[in-house]
Design a protein around this nucleic acid. Structure first.
Length: 118
DNA sequence: GCAATGACGCTCT
DNA sequence: CAGAGCGCCATTG
């Protein structure tokens, strides 16, 4: 019998749940703060899945209302992606809430980082 | 099934 | 302190 179809469906459901938890975590990042991809993954209960967070955000539809711009890489830099205009948009949104990038294009995580490490 | 790829993380030079 | 290198995870061809 087709156990593969059931397994496939279960897998899809699990992925949808993971995606939901990631988005919920991103939505909980306070205004004026930024989280790392790995940090979001960890907060969502799935450590070492930073790349999954990046994938989910890359597939995020426009106008989702989620603060996707508050997610940067572990060094506080805006992650490189296919569309540079998206990177500029992120920088713009962060600036609007008081988060500036230094000369090297990095956010001061010790000041704006979330969640609090100390 | 293996290799390539990507909004990543971390260490070593 | 910037780069290169390697690890990690999931998807795609």
């Amino acid at each position: 019998m087709k156990e593969s179809s059931r397994a496939r469906a279960a897998g899809a459901e699990r992925r949808a749940l993971d995606r939901h938890r990631i988005l919920a975590t991103v939505d909980s990042i306070p205004r004026g703060r930024v989280a790392t991809y790995g940090g979001v993954a960890r907060e969502a209960g799935m450590p070492r899945r930073a790349r999954l967070v990046g994938r989910v955000l890359s597939e995020l539809p426009a106008g989702s209302g989620l603060p996707w711009h508050r997610v940067v890489d572990w060094q506080g830099r805006i992650a490189r992606r296919g569309d540079p205009s998206s990177e500029r948009e992120q920088r713009r949104r962060l600036a609007r809430e008081g988060v500036r990038l230094d000369a090297r294009g990095r956010v001061d995580l010790s000041r704006h980082g979330w969640p609090r490490s100390w």
